[in-house]
Simulated scan of single mutants.
Amino acid sequence: MFDSPVPALDVGSVPGDGYLLDVREHDEWQAGHAPGAVHIPLHELAQRAGEVPREQQVYVVCRSGGRSAQAVRALNDAGWQAANVTGGMQAWALAGREMTSENEADPQVI
Rank of each mutant, 00 (worst) to 15 (best):
G50F: 01
L20H: 07
N103I: 11
A82H: 11
I110H: 07
V52I: 15
G32W: 06
E102Y: 00
A69Y: 01
S101H: 08
R73C: 06
A71V: 13
G32A: 07
S64F: 03
V60S: 01
G65T: 03
Q90M: 15
N84A: 09
P107E: 06
R24D: 02
V60I: 12
G79Y: 06
S101M: 10
R73T: 12
T100H: 00
W80G: 03
M99A: 06
E104S: 15
V58M: 08
H26T: 14
W80P: 10
A93S: 13
Y59V: 09
V38Q: 07
Q108D: 04
N76P: 11
L94R: 15
A83L: 12
R54E: 06
Q47H: 11
A46R: 15
R54V: 10
H43I: 07
V38W: 00
Q57K: 13
Q108Y: 05
G88V: 08
E44P: 00
S101A: 14
G88F: 13
D77R: 14
A78I: 05
T86N: 11
L21M: 11
S101Q: 07
N103R: 09
A69C: 03
E51H: 01
S68N: 11
V85L: 08
D106W: 00
P41L: 05
Q56A: 08
T86H: 02
R24S: 09
A71S: 05
L94I: 00
A83P: 08
L45T: 08
A105Y: 03
V85F: 00
M99E: 09
D22G: 09
W29Q: 04
A95R: 09
D27H: 12
G32H: 04
S101P: 06
A74T: 11
C62D: 15
G87K: 02
G79S: 04
W80D: 02
E25T: 09
A34P: 04
Q108E: 13
G50S: 13
R97L: 14
A69K: 01
A37R: 03
P53L: 09
M99R: 00
A71H: 07
V60Y: 01
H43K: 08
G32T: 14
E25P: 02
V58L: 09
L94G: 08
A37K: 06
R54Q: 13
A91D: 07
G50M: 01
V61I: 15
A69M: 03
D106R: 08
L75C: 08
G36C: 10
A95I: 01
A82K: 05
H33F: 07
L21I: 14
S68M: 07
G79R: 07
Q81H: 14
H39T: 03
P41T: 08
T86F: 02
G87H: 01
L42P: 06
V85C: 02
Y59S: 01
W80L: 03
H26Y: 04
S68K: 01
I110M: 13
H33A: 10
A78S: 14
R54Y: 03
A105E: 15
V23S: 08
A31G: 10
P35W: 11
W92C: 04
A74Y: 13
H26I: 13
V61L: 06
A34M: 09
W80T: 05
R24T: 15
P35E: 11
W80Q: 05
A93R: 12
A37T: 09
